[in-house]
Amino acid sequence: TPVVLGLEERNPACDDPETEAAALAGVDYLNQHVRWGYKHVLNQIDKVRVWPRRPSGEVYELEFDTLETTCHALDITPLANCSVRTVTQHAVEGDCDMHVLKQDGQFSVVFAKCESTPDSREDVRKVCPQCPLLTPVNNTKVVHAANAALAAFNAQNNGSHFELLEISRAQLVPLPVSTYVEFAVVATDCAAADGTDPACSGPPKKQYGFCKATVAEKLGGEEVSVTCTVFPTQPVAPLPQPDAASSANPPPAADPAVSPPSSPSVPVDSVALGPKRV
């Protein structure tokens, strides 16, 4: 095949403004499509190659690292206002492979695969020997703490009745003996006072919230402290498909209410969207 001039790959620098713009478009895509866990920010671009695309445009093949923020995926807070989770809070890193098409000056993601892993226990211990470490979210104490906190919130809440959507992260605190848990909730059509009504098991409204709770073990009982933020109701639109998406590779469900349940262990999550190749 004769070489076609002008169609060779490019290798721009990882900190090249165009590379950064492509990576940031990838991070935006990630945060718009992940419906559980936390929003992530760009931390470091590891590799980049740029391929020409027929009939026009270029595809940025990117590898980059992200860091978990304290904003839940359903939180409407702009990413710029989300704090990066610190090492002492047991940070979580994301590792992403993405293909980002640039055409007519616009970026669009055509392939995305990200996996996240928590920092090692040893690394956290080096910086903070006493800091509580992440605990699997299916831990009995964690599940109990989330349910107790949600019950306490519903008991005090005059508005909608909320149900547990996912447990997002948790830590067992040694002193005072307590369980710290963060979890997402979804409102049902029932008022809080009707929580025991069987009719309340119907399909939930699309109103989500995010709670942080501490359940401390006390002599003869426990003390529950919970704070929940309810996000404004958001219209639920179908997820946009990557350009070359096929029915053989369906994206995750658009409805968080039917998204996979909480991860069975420490939140090590991954999402693969769109076709394998451009």
């Binding site: 990882c14 900190d15 931390n43 671009i45 590891d46 690292d65 990066v84 940070a91 890193e93």
Partner: peptide, 28 residues
């Protein structure tokens, strides 16, 4: 005619390696 050999331009700013890029927060 004697000419001086070319002198290297000296130590200038070293460009950063093309990849990986800078760490924006911290590496774990």
């Amino acid at each position: 005619k004697v000419t001086h050999p070319g002198v290297a331009s000296g130590v200038g700013p070293v460009p950063p390696p093309p990849c990986p890029g800078r760490i924006r927060h911290f590496k774990i």
